[in-house]
Amino acid sequence: MIRPDPAALAAVHARAFPAPWSRDEFAALLAQPGVLAVVEPDGFILIRIVLDEAEILTLAVRPEARRAGLGGRLVGQAAVAAAQAGAVRLFLEVAEDNAAARALYDRAGFRPIGRRKAYYARPDGGRTDALVLGRDLAMNPDTAPLP
């Protein structure tokens, strides 16, 4: 697998978020064991796999490419990669007020399992809670295990 370019990831992240991560932050993350990026031209997802658990660190899609299914494809590809690496559970945190992201994760089979009070800072100085979501990655013939 080709290692993603931290500068390219930072550029997409800057288009997707008001407080983007820097090139150096992406370089440091990508250098860590168990960190994997799934990259497409208009977006990417970054996950970390530790033992039998995986966490979505960030998912970024360029604004002009949203609402075309890319986010769902990236989540699905990350879930497959995590399962292939031995993870049985996939977790993430999402801002409680991010309705679009919450709908995406709900469609991908994630369910709320916790809350982090005042986790995310807002540009106006306010804070919002993060919902901790999780989903099983184990194959089950009675359900669609991966998006």
Rank of each mutant, 00 (worst) to 15 (best):
P41V: 00
G86Y: 14
V94E: 05
A118F: 12
L59I: 03
I45Q: 02
A31Y: 05
A79G: 04
A138R: 11
A95H: 08
Y119G: 00
I47N: 08
R66T: 07
A10Q: 00
R107V: 01
I113G: 10
A54E: 02
A103W: 06
S22G: 12
N98E: 05
A79D: 06
D97V: 06
V35I: 10
G43T: 02
R116A: 05
Q32C: 10
I56C: 11
V38F: 04
E93Y: 13
Q84M: 05
R15F: 06
A31E: 07
E93D: 02
R122Y: 15
D42Q: 03
G71S: 04
L46C: 08
D24F: 13
P18F: 04
A68G: 11
R3V: 09
Y119E: 03
T128M: 09
P112L: 01
D124I: 08
I45C: 01
A121G: 09
G76P: 03
D42E: 03
V88D: 15
A101Q: 07
R116T: 08
G134R: 13
A79T: 03
A83W: 06
A11S: 05
Q32G: 13
R135K: 11
A60C: 05
E96T: 09
A68R: 13
R107I: 01
R73N: 07
A87C: 09
A31P: 09
A85T: 03
F44N: 01
D97E: 05
L131D: 03
A54I: 01
E55S: 03
A19V: 14
I113F: 09
N98K: 11
L36Y: 14
I47S: 01
A60F: 04
D42N: 05
F26I: 06
A138N: 11
V88F: 15
I47D: 05
F26V: 06
L133F: 08
L131V: 04
L29I: 11
A121E: 14
L137A: 14
V12C: 01
I113P: 14
L57G: 11
N98G: 01
R67I: 10
P41A: 02
A68L: 13
G72V: 04
Q84Y: 10
L51N: 14
L36M: 12
R135G: 05
V35M: 15
A103M: 03
R3S: 01
A10S: 06
E40R: 03
V39G: 15
A118P: 13
I45L: 00
R135F: 02
P41H: 08
V132W: 00
V61Y: 03
G125P: 07
R66F: 02
R15L: 02
R115S: 07
P112D: 04
F17C: 10
F17V: 09
A83G: 14
P63W: 09
A16Q: 07
R23S: 13
G86M: 06
R73H: 08
G43V: 07
R48T: 12
G109L: 11
L104D: 05
T58K: 00
G72E: 02
P112Q: 01
V61Q: 01
A11W: 04
A95S: 10
P18Y: 05
R67S: 14
E40A: 00
G72R: 06
L9I: 14
R3T: 04
R48P: 15
A95P: 01
I113R: 04
R3W: 13
R67H: 06
L30M: 11
A37S: 12
V50Q: 09
R107K: 03
I49P: 13
G72P: 07
G43M: 02
F26H: 02
A121V: 12
A19C: 08
G69W: 06
V80E: 05
L137G: 15
